[in-house]
Simulated scan of single mutants.
Amino acid sequence: MKKSLLGIIALPIIALTLAGCSSSASKDKTVNVGVLQIVQHGSLDAARKGFESELTKEIKAKHPKWKVDYNYQNAQGDQANLNTMSRQIVQKKPDMILAIATPSAQTVAKQTKTTPILTTAVTDLKSAGLVKSTNKPDTNVSGTMDLGPVGKQLKLLKSLTKNNKPIGVMYNSSEENSGLQVSIAKQYAKKNNIKLKIISVNSSNDVQSALSVMSNKISGLYLPTDNLMASSMKIIGKVANEKKLPVVTGSIEMAQDGGTATYGINYRDLGKQTAKMAAKVILDKKNPKDMPVETSKTLRLYVNNDRAKALGIDPAKIQEP
């Protein structure tokens, strides 16, 4: 009888102990997210901030007591930094990694084949060698792509030009994502009888001189979502303003920093979209290898009113292509 009585007393104690452990585990859990960014500029910063705010919101909605710790590393455009930082992030064994832009994703993917990696601001994950298929990645990588409507952006620029000179296209040929967009631009131009003058630059020091040389030979300037171009928007905007050249950019943030207009991606929204995928990885234990790569769900017309007015263009007359 004593044994039975002890058993009856012990059961509630064990239950309370287990409940206490569970409660404690819930309160003390910290989600660790490594964040690797190639360089600092408006578009990539917006993607990161959108990701972090939305992921924290998603996790807190389900587990109010959980903490989210972001180990943010920015390589400032240096490949050596990128290699070192990717190793450091992987060594900390985070719950998952966010890789911002193609070089970041490629570098960190070489460091781990097991830690879940989600990307944002990558133009094409398959061509970058990050996934086997966009529908079924079959690697530890998935995420969101930032390939915008290049054809519609060129159409928009054509509507802003005032003469028959070629449209200028400037990009960094060492960025794979930029090369892909320029190829699309060439195809669209050929199909629609648009003349292009394409120039490639490899450093910020070359941007101003290259644009100054080509400015009198073009009717407007198109800039793809290119990290070097995005980092140089203030310089580009200044020269374009002096030469009275309309500038259409690959992203809204680039247009805000010195362009005239765009029909494109909002990177903060893209970061939030990536965060919803990350929430499935962390909260629902989804595996990136089974998560289809996503494209931006939001595209919109953005007009930099001040830049448009400086060119003698009525912002209200700029229409969605």
Rank of each mutant, 00 (worst) to 15 (best):
T144E: 07
D95L: 12
G7T: 14
K2E: 15
N205F: 01
S183H: 04
A310L: 11
M291W: 11
Q153A: 12
G258V: 10
T144L: 08
K65Q: 13
K57Q: 07
K197E: 13
L221T: 14
E320S: 05
K113P: 10
V108D: 12
Y188K: 02
T120L: 07
M170N: 06
I318Q: 03
I194H: 02
A189M: 03
G34A: 09
S200R: 02
S231E: 05
L125R: 01
G143I: 03
S26M: 03
N266K: 07
K243N: 13
I167D: 03
Q76I: 10
S232C: 13
V213Y: 09
D257Y: 08
M1Q: 12
K197W: 01
L245T: 11
P166G: 04
I236M: 05
T249P: 10
P246L: 10
Q273M: 12
A109L: 11
A109P: 13
L301W: 01
A61P: 00
G50H: 04
V182E: 03
K272S: 15
D69I: 04
A61G: 00
M254Y: 05
M233L: 14
Q40P: 00
K136D: 01
S231G: 11
T84R: 09
L118N: 08
M254D: 11
L36M: 08
S43D: 07
V35C: 06
S219L: 03
R307A: 15
T120I: 05
V239H: 02
M233K: 11
K285A: 14
Y222D: 11
I38S: 07
Q181E: 14
S53Y: 00
V33I: 15
E176Y: 02
L130I: 13
S22T: 02
A19S: 08
S53T: 13
D257G: 14
A189Q: 01
N287H: 06
G34V: 05
G77Q: 03
I100P: 10
D78V: 15
I318H: 02
K309Y: 07
N287E: 12
P103L: 04
Y302N: 07
Q111W: 09
S178Y: 06
K57F: 00
E52D: 07
Y302I: 07
S86M: 10
N287A: 06
N164C: 01
L11R: 00
K136V: 13
L118C: 08
I252M: 02
I218S: 03
M229K: 04
M170Q: 10
E54S: 05
Y222F: 12
T120Q: 10
K309R: 15
D69Y: 11
G312F: 11
K132E: 13
D69R: 08
S23T: 03
S23D: 00
L16F: 07
K65L: 06
E175Q: 13
G312Q: 11
W66A: 14
N266G: 03
N193H: 14
A47C: 04
I236H: 03
I235E: 06
K286H: 06
A210H: 02
K155M: 13
V131R: 01
R87Y: 09
K93A: 15
V303F: 05
K162M: 04
I167M: 05
I167W: 01
